[in-house]
Design a protein around this nucleic acid. Structure first.
Length: 423
DNA sequence: TCTGGGGTCCTAGGACCC
DNA sequence: TCTGGGGTCCTAGGACCC
């Protein structure tokens, strides 16, 4: 019995989230910007039709935006994250086996539905999400994840399919594969795409029928699995239970270049605090911490990158210890006299919190530290972000961009809940 | 003037061990 | 003086994904 994978994908997810509470935007071009409003990270179909590209710097398309009255939003991750969570909850009505692949995508296991009409099932799922959340989605079904991706791709771009395509009932996949440029296959990026084209492999069908030893040599084992998946042999399983992350990073571009050590220190502290929260959320502890800062690589400023890594004696999830290490690291690598534009931290060498390898000479673990972290995390969860925080991050943060174009966080803040007015 | 953020996997090569 | 084979661990770098 072959497995059956469904891939559910939100259409233009961030842009669609903006429309949920702002229906006047239906049919109009909408774009969502990156942190700091620097570049475009999501586009409605109308915006795509205007030629606005993913990742395009906003300043390059200012005229276009003005001329076509493109609705423009700062990113509102609280809203998108919450709607994404609700989308997954809705999927759970259809199958308990869900792999949350990204904020707008999930793989669903329907192997138990061998004899069901999957097209109808997909339509039901799609309409349930549309009715319940106001979000448009597409669903693709196939016997492998890679083909489910492909099915979703066609479901999205072929109006006749009405958002759902079941490839498990298609006996000849050739037309679908042949119509797909090789670099649009999941797992083939720009570099591999160029290489394959050089060798005459231009579409999915040619890739599916290419020589495995050649693929092994050029694209390593991952490429071999990819080709098998295109031939209907499943190599990538559904990952129900997400593994804890092996590294945690937090980084940001600053609103303006900063040449002040104290301000940079506050920014780094803010990243460490956020990283510590992520760490504890997955019940991990970190043995390694790196920090870095860099200047703007896009302008004529001198290209400077400074970083430093600290290996802690013992893995920890205690934010004050991480803050101390980060502060030390920054002092080690900071170079005076440059305008830094971005900074970040990396937590690595993670282990499970309750399996920390202890040092013979280290003092006994302090239960008060764990209790303190638990209390802080709980307060911030229940009473709102930063109800309790650390002095190290400072009170004013000149590095933090102000999201002037952000829509209200309708579903996660009482003060921003939508108001219905009687006329 | 103005260009995002956060991850994963795989391999090659060097150091080191027996 | 010359000569072998097998293994592990670590890191850097390159590819990919959203």
């Amino acid at each position: 019995m072959k497995p059956i994978f469904g891939l559910l994908d939100g259409n233009n997810f961030y842009a669609s989230c903006e429309r949920v509470f702002n229906p006047q935007l239906e049919g109009k071009p909408v774009i969502v910007l990156s942190n700091g409003d620097g570049c475009v990270v999501a586009r409605s179909n109308e915006a795509k039709a205007l030629g606005i590209k993913m990742g395009q710097p906003v300043f390059l398309i200012k005229d276009l935006i003005k001329r076509h009255k493109v609705a423009m939003f700062s990113s509102n991750f609280e809203l998108y994250g919450d709607l994404s969570r609700r989308m997954i909850v809705t999927c759970a009505q259809f199958t308990p086996h869900i792999e949350v692949y990204s904020i707008d995508e999930a793989f669903l296991d329907f192997s138990d539905c061998q004899s069901r009409d999957l097209t109808m099932l997909g339509q039901d799922l799609k309409q349930t999400i549309r009715r319940g959340l106001g979000l448009p989605v597409c669903v693709g079904f196939a016997h492998t994840k890679t083909l489910a991706k492909l099915a979703n791709h066609f479901a999205k771009k072929t109006p006749r399919l009405n958002g759902v395509l079941d490839l498990t009932v298609v006996s000849d996949l050739r037309p679908y594969l042949e119509a797909t440029p090789v670099s649009e296959i999941w797992g083939v990026g720009r570099q591999y795409g160029k290489m394959l084209e050089y060798y005459g492999i231009r579409n999915g069908w040619q890739l599916a029928n290419s020589d495995l030893s050649f693929i092994r040599k050029k694209m390593t084992i991952g490429g071999v699995k990819l080709v098998k998946e295109l031939n209907g042999i499943s190599c990538f399983d559904l990952q129900d239970m997400p593994e804890p992350k092996q590294t945690i990073t937090v980084s940001r571009t600053f609103a303006n270049p900063i040449d002040d050590f104290e301000e940079i220190k506050k920014a780094i502290a803010t990243f460490v605090i956020a990283g510590g929260e992520k760490l504890r959320k997955q019940s991990s502890a970190a043995r390694g911490l790196s920090i870095y800062i860099r200047t703007n690589p896009h302008n004529s400023d001198p290209k400077v990158w400074c970083g430093h890594t600290v290996n802690l004696e013992e893995a920890t999830d205690y934010t004050p210890t991480l803050l101390k290490a980060a502060s030390y690291a920054l002092e080690q690598c900071y170079r005076d006299g440059f305008r830094y534009r971005k900074g970040g931290i990396l937590l690595f060498d993670l282990c499970e919190k309750d399996k920390i390898q202890r040092n013979l000479f280290s003092p006994a673990p302090n239960p008060e530290q764990s209790a303190l972290m638990r209390a802080v995390d709980m307060l911030n969860k229940r009473m709102g972000k930063e109800t309790v925080t650390y002095a190290a991050k400072g009170r004013s943060n000149i590095w933090q961009p102000i999201p002037t174009l952000r829509s209200p966080r309708y579903t996660t803040r009482w003060a921003e809940i939508p108001v219905v007015k009687a006329i």
